[in-house]
C-alpha cells in the first residue's frame, strides 16, 4: 500500500477510487426515498405555512386598505356634517339676535307709547281740573263781587 494514486490507476480488483457496484443504485433509491420523505415532512408543510402567511398578509393588507378608505369616507362625511352644523348654528344665532332686537324694539315702542299716553291723559286731567277750578273760582269771585256790591249799596 504505497500510494493512493497506484490504487486509483491500477484498477485493483478490490477497491479503488472508481469502484462502481451496487452502492450506486441503492444510493439512488435512498435519495429518491429521501426526496419523498422531505417532500412530506419539509417542503409541503413549510410551503403551506409560508404561503398561508403570504396570503394572510395580502388579505390583511387589502382589508386594512378597505378600512382606511372607509374611515376616510366617514371622516369626510363627518367633516361635511360638522360644517353644516356650524353654519346652521351660526344662522340660528343670527336669527335669535335679530329676533331679540326686534322684540326689544317692539317692547320699547310699546312702553314709550304707553308712557306718552298716560302722560297725555294726566295732563288732560290736570287741565280739566284746572279749568274746573278756574270756573269755580270765577263763580266764587263773581258771587263775592256781587255780595260786596250789594253790601255797599245796602249800607247807606
Amino acid at each position: 500500500m504505497t500510494s493512493w494514486l497506484l490504487l486509483a490507476e491500477a484498477g485493483v480488483p478490490e477497491g479503488g477510487l472508481f469502484d462502481l457496484d451496487a452502492t450506486l443504485p441503492l444510493m439512488a433509491v435512498q435519495v429518491v426515498l429521501l426526496t419523498f420523505i422531505l417532500n412530506s415532512l419539509f417542503f409541503r408543510p413549510v410551503g403551506r405555512a409560508v404561503e398561508d402567511r403570504e396570503s394572510f398578509i395580502s388579505t390583511s393588507r387589502a382589508e386594512a386598505k378597505q378600512k382606511l378608505a372607509q374611515v376616510e369616507r366617514l371622516e369626510a362625511d363627518l367633516r361635511e356634517q360638522l360644517k353644516d352644523a356650524r353654519q346652521q348654528s351660526q344662522k340660528l344665532i343670527l336669527e335669535a339676535e335679530q329676533e331679540m332686537d326686534r322684540l326689544y324694539r317692539e317692547a320699547l315702542a310699546l312702553a314709550t307709547a304707553e308712557a306718552n299716553a298716560s302722560r297725555e291723559q294726566a295732563r288732560r286731567e290736570i287741565d280739566a281740573q284746572r279749568d274746573q277750578a278756574m270756573t269755580q273760582l270765577n263763580i266764587d269771585a263773581d258771587k263775592l263781587g256781587d255780595l260786596i256790591v250789594s253790601r255797599l249799596l245796602a249800607t247807606p
Binding site: T2, S3, W4, E14, L17, D19, L26, M27, Q30
Partner: peptide
C-alpha cells in the same frame, strides 16, 4: 517504501455483502 500517506486509505472500502452484491458500507 512505506509513506505515511498510505494511512489515508484512499480507495479502500468497507464491503458489505448483500446477496451476491457488494456495497460500500462506509458510504451508507
Amino acid at each position: 517504501l512505506t509513506l505515511p500517506l498510505a494511512e489515508l486509505e484512499v480507495g479502500k472500502h468497507l464491503y458489505w455483502q448483500l446477496g451476491n452484491l457488494k456495497i460500500h458500507g462506509q458510504v451508507f
